[in-house]
Design a protein around this nucleic acid. Sequence first.
DNA 1: CACTAACCTGAACTCTTTCTGAAAAATACC
DNA 2: GGTATTTTTCAGAAAGAGTTCAGGTTAGTG
Lengths: 221, 221
Amino acid sequence: MRLLLVEDDRLLAEGLASQLEKAGFSVDITRTAKEAVILGEQEEYKAGVLDLGLPDGNGLDVLRKWRSSKATFPVLILTARGDWQDKVNGLKAGADDYLAKPFQTEELIARLNAIMRRSEGRVQSSVKAGRFELDENRQCLKVDDGSEHSLTGTEFRLLRCLMGRPGHIFSKEQLMEQLYNLNESPNENIIEAYIRRLRKLVGAETIATRRGQGYLFNDAV
Amino acid sequence: MRLLLVEDDRLLAEGLASQLEKAGFSVDITRTAKEAVILGEQEEYKAGVLDLGLPDGNGLDVLRKWRSSKATFPVLILTARGDWQDKVNGLKAGADDYLAKPFQTEELIARLNAIMRRSEGRVQSSVKAGRFELDENRQCLKVDDGSEHSLTGTEFRLLRCLMGRPGHIFSKEQLMEQLYNLNESPNENIIEAYIRRLRKLVGAETIATRRGQGYLFNDAV
DNA sequence: CACTAACCTGAACTCTTTCTGAAAAATACC
DNA sequence: GGTATTTTTCAGAAAGAGTTCAGGTTAGTG
């Protein structure tokens, strides 16, 4: 779950990032409008959190540039308390939601999940597919027969990505982008290694390979 | 732009509806949870506005019933001022946004546009011809009888070319140009080889040969 | 009717991608 | 500081896609 956080207050940014990472996101931070535009256009994020007050430009301009390019990930904007006009302008510029400072991180996470769920075309809050169900809170996998298996962080994030859209083919590159941010980018074989482990849990036939294209979660099994 | 407004306060509902209609929406109003569930499941709405306080049931239950059926349109929920728990519950139940009462209609409209834009953002492209349909996303071939067959990259590109213009004759040279760039130019027999493979999938009569001219996809079969 | 060019066919070959098991490195936990 | 867990890397094996080839068929032509 890759996320772009655009926030110039370094302390706030890093505090938020650490909490978001605990919630399973992989966070890139930038403090300038200029860099935000470039990152948003070039990288593949699942969502963006955008502070409107930036040192080198207006956050709304960043948003507009994203929207006029191919950066279509959902964006949540952070506004000063009660700044009514900013909200409406932001929503008109293509934002998907806003949050007024100060806010609780819990709410930020809930809202991010909501806008991402929507953008992924998923409407249910629990991730179910086929005979399996992913428990977001306990980070474990439940099977139809009542059995349960706990997952490591990476296993969980990868499986959530696949199960979030059963039948959809995810390329290895896409999966890499979901699991890792700019700083960390291990060998692409890592995906194969994790796919193998997941297959041991859910059965080999449940995660199908489309050679040259990617992997998909097969919920029809 | 059809919209479902679930609100038990008749005065508020009608005032809102009239403003939403000015903004270009076509609004259905219902005042009960029971009717809301039925309407949401049976009609085709672009979005829903849902008040959580209803006389005959909780709005969240309505939302959950929609989400567990095929009612996947984006939903904005209306909550009492500052009712923090309702918001999070609503978002978790699959709502796309919320608005605390009292609110300005301008903001409601801006937010509705935001969530609709997002939900429409996904376009699934597919090519249909005869009894067959080509799924661009999953790179697979679907047949009328419900069966499905995944394709390799080259199979897919060739078939998409032919199915993109049923009845049109493509010469082998044209097909070569579609499949390969200047650097790679294999033996022209490669086309014959792939045509053969495709015929095994769609039936020999579906791809006709025009000796000396080329091949065509026959959608009249 | 015989000839030829175009097309069909099945199998073999090459090359790339993916799988696999194990081991090394990093990290978290006590 | 040591141990357990998790993440990452590696290299050989296996599988699959792409391509070629040799020979068989067929449709058109004079």
